[in-house]
Design a binder for these strands. Structure first.
Lengths: 337, 337
DNA sequence: CTGTTAGCGCGTTCAG
DNA sequence: CTGAACGCGCTAACAG
């Protein structure tokens, strides 16, 4: 309830000095006699004096804090990106506050308000599957606070973005399946609202076309990424008269869930049906069968996003660049194909 | 670089009012005429006015922010605890800033400084495997900022703690192995510096004693949790003249790593050797063989820690309670035993 | 080298 | 109902 903060005034009084003198030594401004400087430093350490960044930030209009908003924490993807981003941020002297929007638009909006109120110097965002209105994010632009998107980006905003070549990743995955003799390849796709789902779907379709396989819309199921539904969709696919011999899933959690369902039905993977996921989550290599997946350069994504943001922060608003970094994916072949 | 913040003064000037009037409507104090109130509110919304919490916190000496410091993010344990803690915190009107110390004492210290400088109202901490000096944490006590430990706690500080019954969890795991005919059970233990390792080790020993199995110190390997070493230790165990027929690992990542090594050597799990982990990480259920493990009530841990912290924050320093909540574990039997 | 002053954005007195 | 004045902890500008 009652914090006992030690302030500059406290140590000024104790040493019979003016606040500005104390402030000077604490900020490193040299114009202080060695004697008083040492006395101040000693007392500061003894009292565990800690600068009140609130006051400093209030003056400087800079908090050295960047916000990160991601839709969820349940897969290993976002946590890993965050760790990488934090590394770069910390290195550059920035703190990070991260919040997860829980795949909910309202929460995302609320989170942005909090970030604004706390005067973050910039934010890194991956939007929820629900987000269609971007007003809450455009506020940042208007206020001169840089914003960088990654993974799930907002197309209509001209700001830096870090994405992977989802089209190519999906294309390579499906092409690989075909080259290995699969003829009926289903796609458990993400929500149509996300560009990322769209591109992966495009890659899927393109690979089929290129290999002269007709696209069967029955084999394409777009869903909202709520894992509990995967069971229904997979069973639906397997119950078809002419069931698929492979499934390309929009992400690893979906693929992993699908594998559980398929195993439970007693089918053999990959003999009866092959599976490919996307993102190379932590669990993918450990499961049985281990999951073939389109790996993303996760650490690079996080580091790039953080770097782009910090670059923007250090630039004047008029100099903002809206580069989009497209990183490469890599197909990692494991037992599920 | 240049943020365009909208302040109370801005809207006061635009409406030809005094700052205090504007402030009144924005804080909900009723003494304002309906007309001016509405005018203010309208303009505020139009300009995306957002209170500067820095200023408010500076005055109120309360940031409504709690800090969370954990040693790592690589297993699913800490992220899940954090999510649960955040839920409670958000509900109670608190923001959270989380930082990971990367199992490094220096980073932990640095993180606490940042938290202090940013005037958090309290912190939730799980210490690193290296932390032996607690001065950086005791500062919080001295400054009247509550602190709550979970999982890896600091024994010498009289503050709230949330732990599980590690002894019992380990005991039950090892007892189960013995009841299933295992006679030479190895223990890949954690660093001796952590109480948590010690208690799990005690549980292991106790179960052996109770079942009249002699403790073979050769079978007990304490290590620093650096996963790369697991391979060496497991191979060492398997190369013994009289190798173990079971391994009880101090945590799931260790167990998972051990399984990979064992599989690579062509041994059968659980026929040749059984494995039990601790914590029921996300991947444990998915791997092959799926991992028998001592589950912790992860969400409950996070929620309890957050609640205890908020309770402390709302109490006067003189009323601080130092309860230790000990939660129950549950042995989850899967294929690895 | 040192002290004084002003002000960051806001809430909260205290006077009208 | 409204305005003026003060202060949170700190830095910066200005005087010595």
């Amino acid at each position: 309830m009652k914090k006992h903060q030690v302030t500059i005034i406290d140590i000024a009084r104790a040493l019979n000095l003016s606040k500005s003198t104390v402030s000077r030594v604490l900020t490193g401004h040299a114009n202080v006699s060695l004697k008083t400087r040492e006395a101040v430093l000693e007392l500061a350490k003894k009292l565990d004096y800690q600068k009140n960044m609130l006051a400093i930030s209030l003056i400087s209009k800079k908090t050295n804090t960047i916000g990160i908003i991601v839709p969820e924490f349940s897969s290993s993807y976002f946590p890993q990106v965050i760790i990488a981003a934090q590394e770069v941020a910390t290195q550059a002297g920035y703190n990070t506050v991260v919040s997860q929007s829980n795949e909910t638009y309202e929460t995302e909006v609320a989170n942005t308000k909090v970030m604004l109120a706390n005067q973050v110097d910039g934010i890194i965002v991956s939007i929820t599957r629900e987000t269609k209105n971007y007003d809450h994010l455009k506020i940042f632009e208007r206020k001169g606070i840089p914003i960088v998107f990654f993974n799930r980006v907002c197309d209509e905003m001209k700001v830096p973005k870090v994405i992977v070549d989802d089209f190519e990743g999906a294309y390579n995955a499906v092409d690989y399946l075909i080259k290995n003799g699969r003829k009926r390849i289903a796609h458990l796709a993400g929500p149509v609202s996300l560009r990322i789902s769209e591109r992966r779907l495009d890659g899927y379709k393109s690979a089929l076309k290129k290999n002269n396989i007709e696209i069967d819309e029955e084999l394409i199921i777009s869903y909202d990424l709520g894992l509990s539904k995967v069971k229904i969709y997979v069973n639906h696919l397997l119950n078809m008269e002419n069931p698929p011999d492979a499934i390309f899933a929009v992400n690893d959690p979906t693929a992993i869930e699908a594998i559980q369902v398929i195993k439970k039905r007693g089918l053999k993977i990959p003999e009866d049906i092959a599976i490919i996921g996307f993102s190379n989550d932590y669990a993918s290599a450990l499961m049985a069968p281990s999951l073939t997946t389109v790996a993303q350069p996760i650490a690079e994504i996080g580091m790039t996003a953080a770097q782009l943001l910090i670059d923007q922060i250090n630039r004047d608003v008029s100099d903002w660049k809206a580069v989009t970094k497209v990183l490469k994916t890599e197909l990692i072949i494991r037992e599920s194909t």
